[in-house]
Design a protein around this nucleic acid. Structure first.
Lengths: 129, 129
DNA sequence: ATACATGCAAACACTTTGCAGCACA
DNA sequence: TGTGCTGCAAAGTGTTTGCATGTAT
């Protein structure tokens, strides 16, 4: 009641969501926009950004902020880690268990509340080696 | 011989380095530029950026790429983790041992070479609570 | 009918770069 | 004295926003 969200199920929203789900390789907003344009539909870039943000907030897709690069989005919503290739800039999943308890390793929170974390590895992908 | 670096010890370079060392709270390039300007000297913003990059590469300061925000720099060169406040956007050190072996938790590297990692926590700082 | 959503372009935040002149080694 | 460095402004990314119009509910 109090947090009554009334989002509309627009065509553009559906296109953005479906496109992310089809792209299994961590696309950023630009890649998603180009995929949509290349296929058939016309969705403006601003709308792509707006919908990616909204869909991520609603939990339909995962938003992966990338240091030194464009944010990526992932159809896989289970929290997991990523590695960014130092050469090609590509972002890939890391096959590593999610460290739910990692915050317990913090010796002294100094009054912070800690509610999430992300780990981004840096390295070289097989193709760039 | 082969990698003969010939960097000059310019006044601007020294000012940038000294300013970062004086600022104990993870300033970004803009904050460093403003601190320099506010004090006395005039160093152009482009030069601040160029020198921060160079000093970080040489290991004099630590470069902390921040997802969704300006990169920070840190006079403390020992690798360590950070937490970003969801409200004020400030970046702070996290008092947690550095996980040198974290890459060992990767189940399958899938041909990647992994050479570094960073962990950024998200939460609310004491002042914003 | 009326919010919410869209498209467009402009603005924004952060960073890099081209170029002519300057200064450290 | 020559190459690395600087200042300036312009350009380059990635992203958000103002506004008039459009549309789902």
């Amino acid at each position: 009641m109090q947090n009554e969200v009334k989002n509309r199920n627009t065509l553009q929203r559906r296109i953005v969501l479906e496109t992310v789900r089809k792209m299994t390789n961590h696309p950023d907003a630009e890649m998603i926009y180009e995929k949509i344009s290349a296929e058939n539909s016309l969705v403006s870039k601003a709308t792509v950004y707006r919908n990616l943000k909204l869909l991520a907030k609603q939990g339909y897709i995962l938003h992966i902020p990338i240091p030194n690069g464009a944010d990526c989005f992932d159809f896989n919503c289970l929290p997991h880690y990523h590695i960014k290739c130092r050469k090609c800039g590509g972002v890939f999943d890391v096959d590593m268990p999610y460290q739910n308890d990692i915050y317990k390793k913090i010796v002294n929170t100094r009054g912070f509340t800690v509610d999430s974390h992300q780990i981004v590895f840096s390295g070289i992908c097989p193709d760039c080696q």
